[in-house]
Design a protein around this nucleic acid. Structure first.
Length: 831
RNA sequence: GCGAAAGUGGCGGAAUUGGUAGACGCGCAGGUCUCAGAAGCCUGUGAUCAUUAGAUCAUGGGGGUUCGAUUCCCCCCUUUCGCACCA
């Protein structure tokens, strides 16, 4: 019988579904293993690039389950968000309809890949059963002062008509649509993630099984800096101005002070300035600029006409306003040390301010902290950075003009969105009582479904009188409901807990069970979430910890980021992307007619015409082939280029595995597996087991190919190698589940191969009985000798001495050194 | 600019603690089967020299440590990614 995946794959998918093989009773005893893929946004069709993520997860799930773990692999939908709303505006379908339709399509796609999820635990963040707990969580954070409404300069995306979190602004542009983000001063809801900056930073140290890269990115984002706050008295103001510095050791070199244009003391400082109007105009202009624009404009400033007193030199130093000082960081004011800071130097050069050297070393501006020694600084002359800082801060604290300070770059998480398709923020605005939270028993605040989508005039919720008008729970009077919705990253910052008890309508989750199942043992998703989602999830988990709802602070014990799958796309000479059907290859070069096209390898995208849809591939080769190829193509964390020819190799491999099974069934061989094949089998079991744990799927599969080739040779010789073959099927199952189930059954084995225990390697059977020792003379390969294994050192040197080829090289020379690497090689150094 | 990772055949990529570089697969070449083709299957496949045996050179470039370096150290080059006036 030929191998026909189109028949066996649906058959096994159906059987697994009927037997509910992936359903887990969270109360049942066993050693838990929580495998989780980041839940996807239901955008519609999936391509082979998306498949990598889920195929990896399924392979891990199956392998751990076969190794006896009670493995849970749930799936849900990050179902709120802008694309649904945009689709509604464009096509007139309701975001909910659009989203549910996509979910159905993606679910069918997962099934065709043979991926096993516990669908009894499915959840979608757009359902009131889910988002009511978002609202509940919001209220708990509000109670604890961790959710607050504040006015601040925020990032506004003019295209998406909403504010964005700092984390959603990439290079000054909206993460979603790429529009240049503008600054606006608005009153919005924030989560006080900055209260957790120190814990989020410190916690990274405990994440041994996270990629270093992700930890580093988070560390940089949190941006912990150690330094001091120092007050500089300002006689004209009658009160001091506080600055933050990481270089207190350079304070003797502070020849001026710079305030952010938005600094609260600016108005008083320039009140009597002759060019006050000009300065105010300049401040207004700078305030409207984004950071990106300010940076492009170069250093600019205005002198306030007032002076501060440097507490260490007692000199009066001018107070300037500067576009490079940010109100959001530190105190919005700096002491400028042009001799030892590049930005201050640049500013000083431009405005002719004195540059003073206070650290000996290289050319000014000299910023090296490691090698310099303090000079012109009476209190600390001759000291290096660390001691100098200590002395200065001690003195600052002694005088009561400041203190040691740790500051963070991280800013509070802006969670308000002026969009419809999200969780309504459960807050009310009462003219009499002010801001009033919706009482918990009134949750959920349901998103009204029958609103019109015009795409204009902002959020449709704000125009829905039935939604907006409410009764105040405190005074009983009429109130206005908050019409902003929550950032969808709120939804995804705790969903991994909800999967354990997804239908509980009395509480957010069951703490005892969540404490049993979490942290997630293996979390898999793209690197694009290195900061956003993972930071927010770590933050919310800590707030849950502080509420006593969970007993862990880190939600994800082990993290893996898969690389993207790329494919060649073709551009014509005008730079437009060309559909693949129009491209023809001559001499390996892409043409459209006579026009030479340029090839560019990139992420799969419909607009680049380089998407590989899995359905065609599955129809031609089967899902198992796609799975094996996807895992074999490259190390899973690396970017990998899809190759249609490469798929053929995976297909051939599975066909051979099938053919060997057929041959074994057809003939009754005589001899059992040879010693060499037995050894290879046990080595393969050990290798595959270890490589799955290390996410080295490409080499795990290559080891299985080697074993399969060895089995092929044995089958050709007529050996009965059923036992070895069955072990191969088991090892292969996590990667190619359908074909292995089918062959398992054909070989007369009982039950699902999925439920069969993972084969165990016997260290005794892995040993070689003859050791081949490589002989080097002066480091060059000069021969080999075979000795019984395990050999003694004497046996080896005796065999080497007796070897003819080696003797030829040794003739007349003296051996000055003998090196023996047990079991591997001998090196003789001669002269 | 700062930070991080990486550079191995025509291609994707392998190589415990330094120990026969190129596993496995793609591609290519030859063979087999066929009227022919496709698919299988078998053999070969880093480069150079040599009829062969074999030799020499090869892991971005240059140096070093070592009996021995893809692996460790120093310098340089290139690529990718992250952050970007954070005081």
């Amino acid at each position: 019988m030929p191998y026909t995946p189109s028949e066996i794959e649906p058959k096994w998918q159906q059987r697994w579904a009927e037997a509910r093989v992936a359903e887990v009773d969270v109360n049942a005893p066993g050693e838990k293993f929580y495998m989780l893929n980041m839940f996807p946004y239901p955008s519609g069709d999936l391509h082979v690039g998306h498949g990598r993520n889920y195929i990896l997860g399924d392979a891990i799930f199956r392998a751990f389950r076969m190794r006896g773990r009670m493995a849970l692999n749930p799936m849900g939908w990050d179902a709120f968000g802008l694309p649904a709303e945009n689709a509604a505006i464009k096509r007139g379908t309701h975001p909910r309809q659009w989203t549910l339709g996509n979910i159905a399509r993606m679910k069918a796609q997962f099934e065709r890949w043979g991926i096993l999820y516990d669908w009894s635990k499915e959840l979608a963040s757009c359902e009131p059963e889910y988002y009511r707990w978002n609202q509940w969580l919001f209220l708990q954070l509000y109670k604890r002062g961790l959710a607050y409404r504040g006015k601040a300069p925020v990032n506004w995306c003019p295209t998406d008509q909403t504010v964005l979190a700092n984390e959603q602004v990439i290079d000054g542009r909206c993460e979603r649509c790429g529009s240049v983000v503008v600054q606006r001063e608005l009153e919005q809801w924030f989560f006080k993630i900055t209260d957790y900056a120190d814990r989020l930073d410190a916690g990274l140290d405990s994440l041994d099984d996270w990629p270093e890269k992700v930890k580093l990115m988070q560390r940089n984002w949190i941006g912990r800096s150690v330094g001091a706050d120092v007050e500089f008295s300002v006689p004209a103001l009658g009160k001091p101005i506080r600055i933050f510095t990481t270089r207190p050791d350079t304070i003797y070199g502070a020849t001026f002070m710079v305030l952010a244009p938005e600094h609260p003391d600016v108005a008083a400082l320039i009140a009597d300035h002759p060019q006050r109007a000009d300065i105010e105009q300049w401040i207004a202009a700078v305030s409207n600029q984004s950071n990106l624009e300010r940076q492009e404009a170069g250093k600019e400033g205005r002198f306030t006409g007032k002076f501060a007193v440097n507490p260490f030199t007692n000199e009066e130093i001018p107070i300037w306003l500067g576009n490079f000082v940010l109100m959001q960081y530190g105190t919005g004011a700096i002491m400028a040390v042009p001799g030892h800071d590049e930005r201050d130097f640049e500013f000083a050069q431009q405005y002719g301010i004195e540059v003073r050297r206070v650290v000996d070393g290289g050319e000014l501006p000299y910023v090296d902290k490691e090698n310099g020694v303090a000079v012109n600084s009476p209190l600390i002359d001759g000291l290096k950075f660390a001691q100098a800082v200590e002395r200065i801060i001690d003195e600052i604290e002694r005088r009561g003009i400041g203190k040691r300070m740790v500051r963070y770059r991280l800013r509070d998480w802006l969670i308000s969105r002026q969009r419809y398709w999200g969780t309504p923020i459960p807050m009310l605005y009462c003219d009499r009582c002010g801001i009033v939270p919706v009482p918990e028993e009134q949750l959920p605040v349901t998103l009204p479904l029958d609103v019109p989508f015009t795409g204009r005039e902002g959020n449709p919720l704000a125009k829905d009188a039935r939604f907006v008008n409410a009764t105040c729970p405190q005074c009983g009077g009429a109130t206005r409901r908050e019409t902003d919705t929550m950032d969808t990253f709120v939804d995804s910052s705790w969903y991994f807990c909800r999967f354990i008890t997804p239908r509980d309508d009395t509480k957010i989750f069951d703490s005892a069970l969540v404490n049993r199942w979490l942290p997630v043992d293996q979390y898999i998703g793209g690197i694009e979430h290195a900061i956003l989602h993972l930071l927010y999830a770590r933050f919310i988990t800590r707030t849950l910890y502080d509420m006593g709802l969970v007993n862990f602070e880190e939600p994800f014990a082990r993290l893996f980021n898969q690389g993207v799958i790329t494919k060649e796309a073709y551009k014509d000479q005008s730079g437009a992307w060309v559909a693949l059907s129009e491209v023809e290859f001559r001499d390996g070069k892409p043409y459209r007619g006579e026009e030479l096209l340029t090839a560019e390898v990139g992420k799969m995208s419909k607009s680049h015409f380089n998407v590989v849809p899995p359905d065609e591939l599955i129809a031609k080769y089967g899902a198992d082939t796609e799975r094996v190829y996807t895992l074999f193509i490259a190390p899973a964390e690396k970017e990998a280029a899809w190759s249609d020819e490469g798929v053929v190799g995976a297909s051939r491999f599975l066909n051979r595995v099938w053919a060997h099974g057929e041959a074994l069934l057809a003939s009754s061989g005589q001899r059992t597996a040879s010693r060499v094949l037995t050894r290879k089998t046990h080595q393969t079991i050990a290798a595959v087991t270890q490589r799955i744990e290390r996410f080295e799927f490409n080499t795990a599969i290559s080891a299985l190919m080697e074993l399969s080739n060895a089995i092929g040779d044995a089958v050709t010789r007529g050996d009965d190698v059923r036992e070895v073959y069955v072990a191969l099927l088991q090892l292969l199952h996590p990667f190619a589940p359908h074909i292995t189930e089918e062959l398992w059954e054909r070989m007369g084995e009982k039950g699902f191969i999925l439920d069969a225990p993972w084969p165990v390697s016997d260290p005794e059977l892995m040993k070689e009985d003859v050791a081949t020792i490589v002989v080097q003379v002066n480091g060059k390969l000069r021969g080999q000798v075979e000795v019984p294994s395990p050999p003694s050192e004497e046996q080896v040197f005796a065999a080497v001495a007796a070897n003819e080829t080696v003797q030829k090289w040794l003739s007349g020379k003296e051996i000055v050194k003998r090196v023996y690497i047990p079991g591997k090689l001998v090196n003789l150094v001669i002269r």
